[in-house]
Write a protein that binds this DNA or RNA. Structure first.
Lengths: 237, 237
DNA sequence: GCATATTTGTCCGTATGTATA
DNA sequence: GTATACATACGGACAAATATG
């Protein structure tokens, strides 16, 4: 016997095989009995190793079903330049957006303040669903100053892309000025939209995009499914 | 028997007694055998409950000595992570850090990968609680390569500051290379530790700090109370 | 819908190693 | 050195959830 416990070696071996792709995300691991037989140990020793892997979120056990490799959350960079389509394609995912609602209305107080608008100024509102490989990962609501981007809704209707819509309205580039991140539990309606169980954890981001001159052009709120996305800061995800 | 496992009742009972002050911080719990006798269960059932309490740092077991309550307040309110301290003081809050646990052990697979260490390499572990105006806002666990920073634990014990501990170990500057943020619901024990209702939303951040040469020097995981903290990016954050 | 096998979760009992007092 | 107490590992049994026919 070495200095380190038996179960750590089993944990490391399984961790390697998962990292190597021998067990892909969503795959079912062999049963605890099979693993115990393979490693020549008691089932409880295997369970100790699996418990450690579950603690770090590598695997997930379902009673009566088996032990499964967790899907790695979609990495979503939220640095200075936030681009949904670019983010997901870079991660090897297939991005998709679904329009839930488009309208023009008077800005609320928080929206007016974020966009530096006068009270009663009108904003375009873009509500939609973001999907990664067909699975919904976020619900978003973006508001834009209507006076400055009169054709915004038409462009959004056509492309569903904020970046493209801005270009069609004469804005070639924009950057994220600030982002605020909080966590909350999913409301029933939010849960149904994101296909989550009630009470699931939600990542809520609130951000303001500005043009080159620093003027706010978009005030966006996004509710991410907490277990399907990982917001990343820095160079790699 | 109720629908919930026996050990959860024992965990909850012990957690209450610790919260009520029946067992004060630093106190030694009765031995596992005594607890087993008291609750009329097997010793392993008590151990399952203790393991859950130890996972979030409520208690700490010392082989040969006993199980101790860890929630000991630190007498040194100064010295903390730079961003944590700067952010809270800038917000008009009083920041505080409490050391929950310090140890040296072999790195897990994820820790070894994040720190670019060989299998079996040792890491120093720093677990603690971050408070704002006396209220806990986050639980954190940082690991450092032990070979490079042999005196890390001693320095942390003295200053509670990662920055100062690094300086004491010859590292004058370090930067955050990447951070990932996910959301999850609080486990019962984590909720108790952060004084949150069960099932509350948790912001989980995982980050790596590197030196000027880009070598990883710290791998940190933090669990924020989702409704008490708002991570902000941009400006000078 | 229902019965049955499978698989994980829980609990008990025992033995031995190892760090601490 | 001795006693104590936690850590590890094994073995068995049953319950609960799931999958399968």
């Amino acid at each position: 016997m070495g200095r380190s416990p038996l179960w750590t070696a089993i944990r490391d071996r399984l961790s390697e095989e998962i990292a190597d792709g021998h067990y892909a995300p969503g795959d079912k691991l062999p049963t605890e009995a099979k693993l115990a037989e393979r490693f020549g140990v008691n089932r409880h020793t295997v369970r100790r190793a699996l418990a450690d892997l579950a603690e770090t979120g590598t695997i997930h056990a379902r009673r009566g079903a088996g032990v499964f490799v967790r899907h790695r959350p979609t990495p979503y960079p939220i640095g200075r330049r936030v681009r949904f389509h670019q983010n997901l394609t870079a991660a090897g995912r297939v991005p998709e957006k679904r329009i839930l609602h488009l309208e023009t209305r008077a800005a609320g107080p928080d929206e007016a303040e974020a966009l530096s608008l006068d009270d009663g100024a009108e904003v375009h509102v873009y509500e939609g669903l973001s999907l990664s490989d067909g699975a919904p990962i976020a619900l978003f609501r973006s508001v834009f100053p209507a006076a400055r981007f009169p054709q915004m809704l038409r462009a959004l209707q056509a492309t569903q892309s904020v970046t493209q819509a801005f270009k069609a309205n004469g804005l070639d580039d924009y950057t994220r000025a600030r982002t605020t991140i909080t966590a909350k539990t999913a409301s029933p309606t939010l849960a149904t939209h994101l296909h989550l169980p009630g009470g699931a954890a939600i990542l809520r981001t609130v951000g303001v995009n500005v043009d080159a001159a620093g003027r706010p052009v978009e005030y966006g709120r996004t509710w991410f499914a907490g277990d399907r996305v990982a917001l990343t800061l820095g160079e790699d995800g």
